[in-house]
Nucleic acid binder design. Sequence first.
RNA 1: UGUCCGAUGGUGUAACGGUAGCACUGCAGAUUUUGAUUCUGCCUGCCCAGGUUCGAAUCCUGGUCGGACAA
Length: 358
Amino acid sequence: MEKRVLVGLSGGLDSSVAAMLLKQHGYEVIGATMSIWDGEYSPLGGNACYGPDERDDIDEARKVAEFIGISYHVFDCAKEYKSTVLEYFRSDYLQGRTPNPCVKCNQLMKFGLLQELARKSGLEFDYFATGHYAQVIHKDGRYALKRAADARKDQTYFLYRLSQEQLKGVLFPLADFKKEEVREMARKAALPVAEKAESQDFYCGDYKELLQVEDKLGSIVLKKDNRILGQHNGFWNFTIGQRKGLGVAYSEPLYVVELKPNENLVVVGTREDVMSTSFIVDDLHWMLLTGIEGQMEVTVKIRSASREAEAVIEPFENKIKVTFNQPKDAITPGQSAVFYKNEVIVGGGVIENLYKQD
RNA sequence: UGUCCGAUGGUGUAACGGUAGCACUGCAGAUUUUGAUUCUGCCUGCCCAGGUUCGAAUCCUGGUCGGACAA
């Protein structure tokens, strides 16, 4: 009997190819897209997750579904998206942290609500699949994510919060392919989205709308001597490690080193000032393991596009303390730190703050 | 209205007298499922007026402006 798979279609290249591959492999495939845009704001058009161009993406996903011959459904997740992802996004920024909406969205929406609504609507399926570049392994009775074959496109970082239950029923058809191979397959099959461009932003409008704030003048101060170097329109417009857009000239590159929400201060410093070695991770989520007792050597990734680096993790109160072997730049509260051992996700959590000795 | 110092692109700076470089900002692009990082490219400048030199940002004179000292 054919196994049934629900595939999350985004209207993009990757998920389309994923669906096509599953179909070719003999699964009975059902396409589904979540609708998250409620039209409250009016940003300029653009290729973003949360935005009015969602309609175009849904149209494309529908075309693709027709093209490869699978059924297609759209589920309205706008309300929940707003109360979870957007609310999280907003409150984190207003606390001077830098949230990662993709992580939240994967955990709660794509790999959560979407399947839930599909089942409620009467659809039955054995697996859930997406076009993510990641692979699932099963070891010692636990499921975990392993980096994709195409290391350059690996997306496990965004998926580290998936639970055992979520991982258990997941398929990633693109796990073993490189991006170029995926595009080539799409071209050969003449998929409608074969030439679709990469990359999408989270939101293509002004973040002020999502944060529900107005500009508020504040100072940009130099860490070294607290000298005021310039002005800004609100600390929420910045993230640790940011270099561009400060509007401040100095003898060397300046980076945002710290945000002080209470005083609406943006503290900047030199390259050296953004480097740290130790930090505390909270809001833990374990994957291959269920926790650790003592120290463990791992590699840690603290930003989607930043390369993972060697570090030691160890319990610290109810949290985890991470210590890099070499100082690392832009360790940012709110971003996720994901621990890998031999390319497999051991666990991860959210960066709470730097750990300072003495 | 005395003395001293300084005066280079939007900002901070560099250039034995030989036609101005660097960093930052800004802009454009590459990379990116986070408005970060990183990478590539681009735009702007020698306070003014004389003079000395084959030739001056660099030397001299005067002016203007800024800073410091000076009751």
